[in-house]
Design a protein around this nucleic acid. Structure first.
Length: 256
DNA sequence: ATGTCACTCAACGAGTGA
């Protein structure tokens, strides 16, 4: 099973890139973040006979969706937490052998805005509880998405300049590690050396041209899933397309 | 040089968020 995660940064602007992604990689499941539209708009922008759609849309901001091949049986996961549902940042599907959760963790900047940064930390804490629930029942779990965290100091060239940013602050990184400590592995750490891959290049300051990127899009998986995972792919070509998203698609392959 | 982009609201640009 091939699963892709991608912060598309507006489905309206980039539905053609999504179609290219599908044509190129034929993922079984696609986790999209920042679709930036309401449910009915998503259905208008993306028409497919091959994928079922689970959409958690919101007018103009955030918004996540899962596209899942029509031959795969699934149930939509319901999340009950108030804070986790405050904005359209999470959706999930349960399959026969595993559950897949798509997340768009709050950015949290600027950090001097107490409201924003504490929302991020509270949101991550709730995600940690959700993970705990799955792990304690031995259910296989895949969480993919934009985590808005610099986990390793090599996930950006100059980490020292990010240590007081909402993505690099120690509380954010601890919160991310707390999620992992429930019993998940970060797939990229198993296959790749830190500092060799980024998933986001800001539109500003010619970040792409200078290869000044961040690694903030991840797949966290339970041990059984890690055993079956054969590789992780960072689809850099998509940052070079006309009117690109600032994030690239990340793809994992799970055998069986 | 905030070396940009996408969104909304209410205009044809300002403000916001990333």
């Amino acid at each position: 099973m091939k699963i892709c995660s991608w912060n598309i940064n507006s489905i309206r602007v980039r539905v053609n890139h999504l179609n290219l992604l599908i044509k190129t990689h034929k993922p079984d499941v696609i986790l999209l973040q920042e679709i930036k539209c309401e449910n009915h708009q998503f259905e208008e922008f993306f028409k497919s006979t091959d994928y079922d759609q689970i959409i958690k849309g919101q007018k103009g901001r955030h918004g996540v969706a899962i596209l899942i091949k029509k031959n795969i049986d699934f149930e939509t996961i319901k999340f009950n937490s108030k804070i986790i549902n405050e904005e359209a940042r999470i959706c999930g599907v349960s399959l026969e052998k595993l559950s897949i959760i798509n997340v768009y963790v709050p950015n949290g900047n600027p950090i001097d805005n107490d409201e924003k940064y504490s929302f991020k930390l509270r949101w991550m804490e709730e995600l940690s509880k959700i993970v705990n629930g799955y792990i304690s029942t031995y259910k296989n779990l895949v969480i993919g998405g934009d985590f808005n965290v610099l986990d390793n100091e090599k996930d950006v060239k100059d980490f020292k300049n990010w240590s007081s940013d909402a993505l690099g602050k120690i509380e954010t990184r601890k919160s991310f590690r707390r999620i992992l400590s429930k019993g998940l592995f970060n797939v990229v750490r198993f296959f790749e050396e830190p500092g060799t891959h980024y998933s986001f290049w800001d539109y500003q300051k010619a970040s792409w041209e200078r290869n000044y990127g961040l690694l903030i899009d991840h797949f966290l998986v339970s041990p059984m899933i890690l055993q079956c995972t054969s590789n992780i792919l960072f689809e850099k070509k998509f940052r070079d397309l006309d009117k690109p998203s600032d994030h690239i698609p990340v793809i994992i392959n799970i055998n069986n």
